[in-house]
């Protein structure tokens, strides 16, 4: 993979690539992509993609707020897991 493509991909994946990792990762990525190219040998003309292996039926949940949901009154415990929080807000450096 060209370095340029690697950098575009890394940006989309929100991965910072320290310069010293670039070369090594590029080589590993290229090795895999070359291997993936093998797939072009298969005639896939009349094949549908398998996106969901075995599910055939609809699956839906009733629109009820579950009173037994233990998180209903314990959201603080979740917010406390955030690296920075205050007054029930999860806080991050300003995005703007």
């Amino acid at each position: 993979m060209k370095t340029e493509e690697l950098l575009i991909t890394a940006a989309q994946a929100q991965l910072a690539l320290p310069a010293e990792e670039e070369g090594r990762l590029a080589a590993a990525v290229t090795e895999m992509l070359d291997y993936f190219a093998k797939m072009s040998e298969v005639d896939v003309e009349n094949l549908e993609p398998t996106t969901h292996a075995l599910i055939r039926d609809n699956a839906l949940r009733a629109d009820n707020s579950n009173p037994n949901n233990k998180f209903n009154n314990n959201q603080e415990a979740l917010i406390e897991r955030a690296p920075e929080s205050n007054n029930n807000f999860i806080i991050i450096p300003n995005v703007l």
């Binding site: 993936f36 797939m39 072009s40 298969v42 896939v44 094949l47 549908e48 993609p49 398998t50 996106t51």
Partner: peptide, 11 residues
């Protein structure tokens, strides 16, 4: 890549 892989999955 991705779509072809899913078709191979069918195969």
């Amino acid at each position: 890549y991705y779509t072809r892989a899913q078709k191979i999955r069918t195969a």
